[in-house]
Amino acid sequence: MTSGFPRIDDVGLDGLLVRFGDSLSESANRAALAFAAALDRDCPSGVEECATSLVSTYVRFDPLGVALEDLRAQLAQRLAGADWYAAALPEGRRLVTIPTVYGTDLAPQLAEAAAAAGMSCEAATESLSTARVRVTTIGFAPGQPYLGTLSEAWDIPRQTALTPQVPVGALVVAIRQLVLFSVTTPTGWRHVGQTKARLFRPEAAEPFLLRAGDEVRFPSVTREAYEAMPGDGVTVEALG
């Protein structure tokens, strides 16, 4: 538990934010995911939505269905009833493997990011391609995951200027995190890998490929193997 956390803050007239920290950590993210899952399993009366960010659980409620202070008291009681920082992660998580080509003209900032991390391109590729990271939250664009945390060597800053555009499936790095883009967009994060992953599938029953709590690997493939893949190469396994 971090000093001053967890705490419950108001968000407008119909929301409460249960905060487990003021910066990303494994334990605070675990707590946010576990607490949201517990609310989904046993939803307090009047609650209409629960969602997580990196270290918080957002609770939206119907002010006509439950009084703010009553709901706050219920949430406080649940917070006191368990050590959420050590709680088990939600059930139904998966291990998702996404083949990635590092460097080349497809991901032209690998060398720059590797230098910032104090590594050669080969060592950086090995580090990123063997890491197993958690989807800490989904945000910014439909189905877009933030993933972490990487080793301390990857505590590199964002760029001071924006890259005008990276494509769908771009894997970018900064501040010990990876982001996999679901849209074509500008970014201040360094583009180190490229995938064929289609993260947002509006035609599917489950439109997002990834969920908060999933674990993800980005194994390295050659440019030739990447070009020859008939699909996106993504595999999904259930985690016990």
Rank of each mutant, 00 (worst) to 15 (best):
F5T: 07
P6H: 03
I8M: 09
V11W: 11
L16V: 07
V18R: 07
F20H: 00
G21I: 00
L24R: 05
E26A: 10
R30C: 01
R30G: 00
A31N: 03
L33P: 03
A34P: 05
L39M: 09
D40M: 07
D42H: 04
D42F: 01
D42R: 00
P44K: 02
E49A: 13
A51S: 15
A51P: 05
T52Q: 01
L54S: 13
F61T: 04
P63V: 10
G65E: 13
L68C: 11
Q74H: 10
G81M: 11
D83A: 04
A87D: 05
G92A: 08
L95Y: 06
T100Q: 05
Y102R: 01
G103S: 09
P108I: 15
L110R: 03
L110D: 07
E112L: 08
A115G: 13
G118N: 03
G118Q: 03
G118F: 00
T125G: 02
E126S: 02
L128Y: 05
L128Q: 04
L128W: 04
L128H: 04
T130C: 12
V135T: 09
T136I: 05
T136G: 01
T136N: 09
T137P: 00
A141Q: 14
Y146M: 07
G148R: 12
T149W: 10
S151H: 04
E152R: 10
D155Q: 11
R158P: 02
R158K: 12
T163G: 07
T163N: 08
P167W: 09
G169K: 11
G169N: 13
V173S: 03
A174V: 14
R176D: 01
R176M: 02
L178F: 02
L178D: 00
V179L: 14
S182M: 10
T184E: 15
T184Y: 06
P186G: 10
T187I: 10
G188E: 09
W189I: 14
W189Q: 14
H191T: 05
A197K: 08
A197N: 10
A205Y: 09
A212T: 05
A212V: 02
E215Q: 10
E215L: 12
S220Y: 12
E224W: 11
A225W: 14
A225I: 14
Y226R: 07
M229K: 09
P230R: 15
V234T: 12
E237Y: 15
